[in-house]
Design a binder for these strands. Structure first.
Length: 268
DNA sequence: CAATCGTCCTGCGGGC
DNA sequence: TGCCCGCAGGACGATT
């Protein structure tokens, strides 16, 4: 489930492999996931690659952008010139991009949930305008977080962390991890959190995200980055775990329709 | 205003 | 053993 750290990892890796090259050929296998219009604009040069929330933005010449959302199971595979696509990566290909240096980028998706759209600057801005702040941006201060929390007193803390309009890029893994490390029960209402707890949540949320980026994300089930598997799954405290780091048996409940692991002893 | 539900999709695990 | 049901998950709109 690519969330902020997984998408950030992919963006850094894609940037190194795509920027300055041209996409010379496109093969679209699943046009429900990948916009057919991309075929009409090749050859086209890649200007930049960046991230906003869980979206990858590939900037092309002439004010065109590829807006990519991987949802749960999307990934990329890069094949240098002269190599062939390994059998593992031939499965679930939704699109293939041939680059000007002879390399190939495949976009794969198991669940076919994601999307890759060709958009103008205007449509890009429109698609991203409702997103909340980036938790790791310099502008996202503790005082801003406190102010945001004070505006939604009745909402529960875990659901709000998953709300992309509230804060952008956090998903089911990192919401649960941040809450565990902050010692906060996921069912708590925002209005009940003490100043100290809000500060702890702010700090732990950012710490967990930074560490997860350093480890190139969490590989559980299908996530892969371009160079292999992530490493953060070794650091998970609660997500998909039986016991917390202090050895307590974890509880699981549904919150906002999502499975939620937490420790009733460590999280109050 | 907050929470829940349905929708999109397919691999896989559980149960019979 | 084999098959079928239902769950999982992110975003978004509609509904409660």
């Amino acid at each position: 489930m690519p969330e902020l750290p997984e998408v950030e990892t992919l963006v850094q890796q894609l940037k190194r492999r795509l920027v300055g090259k041209k996409i010379v050929e496109v093969k679209i296998v699943n046009s429900k996931v990948v916009d057919n219009k991309i075929k009409k604009i090749v050859p086209v040069k890649v200007i930049g690659v960046r991230r906003r929330a869980k979206s990858i933005i590939i900037e092309l010449e002439k004010g065109q952008f590829l807006l990519v959302h991987l949802r749960m199971s999307g990934h990329f595979h890069y094949i240098p010139k002269g190599k062939t696509i390994e059998a593992d990566y031939q499965r679930f290909i939704v699109a293939e991009f041939k680059l000007s240096d002879g390399s190939i980028l495949t976009h794969n998706s198991i669940r076919m949930f994601g999307s890759m759209k060709l958009v103008s600057k205007k449509h890009l801005d429109l698609a991203l305008e409702r997103l909340g702040p980036e938790p790791l941006s310099r502008e996202f201060s503790l005082s801003q977080f406190k102010e945001m929390i004070s505006r939604k007193k009745k909402a529960n803390v875990k659901t709000v962390l998953l709300d992309q309009q509230f804060i952008a890029g956090i998903g089911n893994i990192y919401a649960q991890e941040a809450l565990y490390h902050a010692g906060i029960d996921p069912r708590r209402k925002l209005g009940e959190l003490s100043t100290l707890e809000v500060e702890k949540l702010y700090k732990e949320m950012r710490r967990v995200l930074v560490l997860a980026i350093k480890k190139k994300g969490t590989t559980i089930e299908s996530y892969l980055h371009i160079e292999g598997v992530g490493g953060f799954q070794k650091h998970l405290a609660v997500y998909h775990c039986q016991k917390c780091p202090r050895g307590h048996r974890l509880k699981n409940l549904k919150l906002g329709g999502r499975s939620t692991y937490y420790c009733s002893k460590c999280q109050k």
